[in-house]
């Protein structure tokens, strides 16, 4: 993607190149994000899927420079937002960006909300701060927003505390907060994992609607391949801190190249299978991100691994289709039928 989109990079909303992030932990450096590059245009959605613990949230947070300063040991690469480098901005400049330019929906609704403040205070604060609204106006707008994200009875709910809401409602409050300032880039870290399918539908419709209306770019991190399939323009698959495959949504579903992508798709429970069907989990343990071994991170679990995979790290290469990139020496070339087993 890097090569192919260089010429139109000024049209891109977000351009991440060679981003690497290492974190400190008791057991040593965690290579949470390794050499990640991608581009997102305004009005587009990039869906990111991948192993849990593969660095999706770390990457998302680093785009907003929201990682705890103490935790970050190293950070390389550049992040351009509308052509402007944001990894070198000062905290004050970043604060001005957060809200109107980038907003984020956090993965964990309870910890993103302050348990001792009412919903009203938490939703109307950015309105007062960034948009300079009066207290009453902010409250009225907050009620509208809560309505928009489908919180029933928003007028009464607004004065409650987070623990009095159900998990899904907390998540919707978090979404409402992210939308307060009409951001041009929305980073949604598992926005609907806590929601049931009908509400998920509503929220995704809301987000897609906003996206159309405001030409908002969206980074959609999720575990639900159904969600990315139905909402994302591009899908990126992350494994052990690296993007192992990036492609337009329909391409990846029809001709996935990376063995991990294939394994991921095979482990989905299908609604048409009988109850208690044994799922095809990927054998072995998820990769260690401390002192990663040389070679392809998926090699210990990969059915196609060869000698070479254990020695060299596969580079990102172009697949047959346009805009389809993957990082594997021995890609799964034959097209795979959906849900089928090779």
């Amino acid at each position: 993607m890097r090569q192919s989109e260089h010429k139109e990079s000024n049209a891109s909303l977000l351009q991440v190149s060679n981003l690497s992030i290492r974190l400190n932990s008791a057991a040593g450096l965690v290579h949470a994000v390794e050499d990640v590059s991608f581009t997102l245009k305004a009005g587009q959605t990039l869906g990111i899927v991948g192993e849990s613990g593969s660095g999706k949230s770390v990457m998302a947070r680093s785009l907003m420079n929201l990682l705890p300063r103490r935790a970050v040991a190293q950070r390389k690469g550049s992040v351009l937002l509308s052509g402007r480098e944001i990894s070198t901005l000062s905290e004050r400049e970043l604060q001005r960006l957060r809200g109107p330019d980038i907003a984020m929906i956090f993965q964990d609704p309870m910890t993103a909300l302050n348990p001792v403040l009412t919903i009203c205070v938490q939703v109307s604060e950015p309105l007062q701060q960034h948009l300079g609204m009066s207290k009453q106006a902010a409250r009225a707008r907050a009620i509208e927003l809560l309505d928009a994200v489908g919180i029933p009875d928003a007028v009464n709910r607004i004065d409650q505390y987070p623990h009095q809401l159900s998990g899904g409602m907390r998540q919707r409050v978090v979404i409402a907060i992210a939308l307060t300032c009409n951001p041009s880039l929305l980073i949604a870290d598992e926005p609907t994992t806590a929601l049931d399918v009908t509400v998920q539908r509503q929220i995704l419709d809301l987000l897609t609607g906003l996206q159309k209306e405001r030409h908002m770019g969206m980074l959609l991190i999720t575990h639900d391949l159904g969600v990315v399939a139905s909402r994302a323009d591009f899908i990126a698959v992350m494994y052990a801190g690296r993007l192992v495959e990036v492609a337009p949504a329909n391409t990846i579903f029809k001709s996935m190249q990376h063995p991990y992508t294939e394994a991921l798709f095979n482990s989905i429970p299908r609604i048409n299978d009988a109850s208690h069907t044994r799922l095809q989990a990927i054998p072995g343990r998820p990769p260690q991100l401390h002192n990663p071994a040389p070679g392809c991170a998926f090699a210990p679990r990969c059915p196609y691994a060869q000698q070479r995979c254990h020695r060299e790290t596969p580079p990102v290469v172009q697949a047959e289709q346009a805009e389809h990139l993957h990082a594997c020496f021995y890609p799964v070339s034959a097209p795979v039928a959906l849900g089928g087993v090779r």
């Binding site: 899927v49 991948g50 192993e51 849990s52 593969s54 993965q107 998990g167 598992e190 994992t193 806590a194 575990h223 391949l225 394994a263 991921l264 482990s267 989905i268 429970p269 208690h276 044994r278 799922l279 095809q280 989990a281 990927i282 998820p286």
Partner: peptide, 20 residues
Amino acid sequence: DEPVSALDVSVQAQILNLLE
């Protein structure tokens, strides 16, 4: 209570198999 909604599908498959 939603034990696997925070997990990716491969870990989810592991956990569901484990529970089974």
